[in-house]
Amino acid sequence: MSFLQISNPAMARRLFLGGSGLSLSGAAVALLAGKHALAAASPAGSTANDVQIINTALGAELEAIAAYQLGAQSQLLQKPVLELALGFQGHHKEHAQTLAKVVEQLGGKPVTAKPAYNFPVDQLKTQADVLRFAARLEQGAVSAYLGAVPLFADRALAKAAASILGDEAMHWAILRQALGEVPVPSAFMS
């Protein structure tokens, strides 16, 4: 049975991930394996630039993880939305783990999470406030990855960044939908 024919999204996802071998961790492993060979052939300057780009992205991912943690602990999110937020946080954790490993593979030092983030906690009073806050971060993440993709010296890394961009865009669309906004506001992202 195709996962596309299953109406239950969770079951469909399990079948897709289990049956196809295209899990996120599998993609990450492939990325890391490819990077190791490519890094050796790249000029030092371009590798250093790629490390800088990935570290900036990693910093944003770590902040997103912290932001979703704040939302999850705020007691403002009702159960279906809370599960959604924790799911998105899980994606960001996977992104961060993969990016950190790539930085190490390239000989760099991955940035780490800040001891504390100065989120505007006083402005988060309702579930919608939390969702709007998360949506802003996701929209910005899409734009950040979009702005990073053309900068990579290594096209494999550009492809990996584009893969993450797609995930962030889905987060943004679903958060907009949850807020009652048009989920996909335009044909192009910028």
């Binding site: 983030y117 100065n118 989120f119 505007p120 802003r136 929209q139 910005g140 993440a141 734009s143 950040a144």
Partner: peptide, 15 residues
């Protein structure tokens, strides 16, 4: 400015 908000915020340091 929505494009910037993955890494910036008006009133606090972010990425």
């Amino acid at each position: 400015y929505g494009r910037c908000m993955g890494c910036h915020a008006p009133a606090y340091d972010s990425v």
